[in-house]
């Protein structure tokens, strides 16, 4: 069960990923806020970020199922991320 508390809706401070990308919530990249000087960012509570993230993956799964009964995978590891974990 999730209990909504307003005080918990501000994301933690960012961790840098690349020159232009940061991460605040696990597995969720975000633009470096410095790049958003012309287009202001919104006050986005944690629950909303998470909602979007989860919906994205549900949507992608749905799209697979929409076009075929089953997804066949090569079953091989990424060869690019190996050298750059």
């Amino acid at each position: 069960m999730t209990i909504f508390r307003l005080g918990e809706q501000t994301p933690p401070p960012p961790r840098r990923i690349t020159d232009t990308v940061v991460e605040r919530l696990e597995h969720q990249y975000e633009v470096d806020p410095d790049l958003m000087q012309i287009t202001p960012q919104q006050d986005m509570p944690v629950w909303d970020s998470r909602r979007i993230f989860n919906a994205r993956w549900d949507h992608l799964d749905w799209m697979h199922a929409h076009f075929a009964d089953e997804v066949l995978l090569a079953g091989e590891e990424s060869e690019t991320m190996e050298e750059h974990p």
Binding site: H59, L60, D61, M63, H64, V71, L73, A74, G75, E76, E77, S78, E79, T80, M81
Partner: peptide, 18 residues
Amino acid sequence: GKYLGDEISAGDWASRHD
């Protein structure tokens, strides 16, 4: 060519419209 992995292959293909 280097394989980008199952997750990207499946996931990126599914996001082809968006």
